[in-house]
Amino acid sequence: MARKPKLAVWKFSSCDGCQLSLLDCEDELLALAGNIEIANFLEASREVIKGPYDLSLVEGSITTPHDLKRIQEVRKISKFLVTIGACATAGGIQALRNFQSVSDFISIVYATPEYISTLEQSTAISSHVKVDFELHGCPINKEQLVEVISAFLFHRKPNIPAHSVCMECKLAGNVCILVSNGVACLGPVTHAGCGALCPSYNRGCFGCYGAKENTNTSSLSNKLYQLGVKNQDIQKLFRSYNAYTPAFLKESKAHD
């Protein structure tokens, strides 16, 4: 048998939740370890096998000058690079700082601001290097992660649809809570992947998976406005985990 492909997991600015999804695979973890060499995954083992790597999973956004250099290194030693989660694909919740001046924060938060070396903005990995596939979510769905790895192993396209959360809601047999209860829900503009988790519990979608393909955020905002959601609250809805995903960014700016 040919050698097993080598997997590396990299962390940038993030909460570790997405790479934990890999450890959270439990049932699939042994099968995974049997078919792929987990060569560099510090969250799971301090043993590191040197690169290059066949598949790199990248978590986190780029927020420091050090990150800027390191992501170039990671790209160089990775044949196939997949970003995992909202931070890596859209800059994450920490991209909220992009709307303000970072120097203002630093002087307020840190006793000795001169030790802090940070960039003005938190940005997605794809702003810096070529990304082969982006897996959305805050956090990512572990089943989708297994699907991406399986697809990589067998040289096929991953089944990760870019349509709306509404489709997942309807496939699950849910009633639309936006229509039937007037709940503010981002489902119609949000990328599927979570399995319509929140609407299944009568909560509006928070947009954790970022923008779906072909979003029409302004039309949804008009509807939310009609439902009585205030302008600044509409802005807050679009300014969360995926605040810097282009479609959500544009929409939140429209409510300044």
Binding site: E28, A31, L32, G34, N35, V146, E147, I149, S150, A151, L153, F154, R156, N159, H163, S164, C166, M167, K170, L171, C176, G187, P188, V189, N214, T215, N216, S219, L220
Partner: peptide, 24 residues
């Protein structure tokens, strides 16, 4: 919104897709 709700709730819309999956 191209959210597809209309087609999901339509009692006559019949389109399907097929997906092939592999395990690890």
């Amino acid at each position: 919104l191209s959210c597809a709700n209309c087609t999901m709730v339509c009692p006559t819309c019949f389109c399907t897709t097929v997906q092939d999956t592999t395990d690890l």
